[in-house]
Amino acid sequence: MLVDPDARILEGTSSRRAKEVAIKLVTQIAAALSLLVTIAIIGTLFYRAIDFVATLANPSEADVENAGVPLSLDLLWSNGQWAPRFTRFDIKTLVVGSLIVTAIAMMVAGPLGLGAAIYLSEYASSRARRFLKPILEVLAGIPSIVIAFFALRFISPQIVQRLFDTASQNLLAAGLGVGLLTIPLVASISEDALRSVPNSLREASAGMGARKMRTTLSVVTPAAVSGLVAAGIVGVSRAIGETMVVFLVAGGGGNSAQFTANPLEKGSTMTAAMASQASGSDNIITEIAAGSLYFVGAVLFVTTFLLNILADRIVRRYREKY
């Protein structure tokens, strides 16, 4: 309650107050819009994914007639083939493909990203950092379609096909390409984790007579381990979600893929299957095949969502620690 009449000046005029409230409201709505995006993603993905599964479980006569084959939930785990146009929905074809590509990608991005992060954080002088860091930043800025071209026209013929007897499209080349895309992300999160280790730990270690390598390996890296694990998880999440490289290089084009556990063969991943199906959408496809797009999308979303939440928790914990 303002008693002093002069103090009322500070309250401002009612129009000025209304303006303040309005501005706050506008920014609040903008922030709330981000929630709406999530709700829209979850809503559309799950609504249609559940619809897809329900149709498989409980098909109407019209559905069966459209599909041309009997429908049942067994379709999601049999046939060893992903080909929605022919009502083949073996999801393990795509999940195993995604796992292979992600594993190869992390074999590339894990050591290279971590090594670069340790060098930048522990060894490089601030001058050197200024020159070296942009390498990773530029690499991070290269669109994935460009890496896809590189994987198909350089990595596959010049590296993979020289070492192994395989077709130009294979899961290995795709995994290597995805790995290149993941390096900058892993490096940047790892570097943050290493740099957040307090200097007193390094000084204590040096004071005990440990050399730089011993300090780095036995003191700094263990102290940052939760952040490094988070970097790995985010890297995995990014690799699973990468689309264009796998779409063009893995060989799952034409919207059909055979089950394979061999990285030298053609295969497909969840993301590539989605792109592949969508790019053929001008053709007439059955409703049930269209639903499979959202089903795969929902599986992909849940996977990356869980990984991101996990990484986020770990990162918060180590931030609190130091």
Binding site: V37, A40, I41, T44, L45, V234, S237, R238, I240, G241, E242, T243, T271, M274, A275, A278, L293, Y294, G297, L300, F301, T304, F305, L307, N308, A311
Partner: peptide
Amino acid sequence: AGVPSVVYGLL
């Protein structure tokens, strides 16, 4: 920020 871009396509 971590949702794969292809999922935004579905949205």
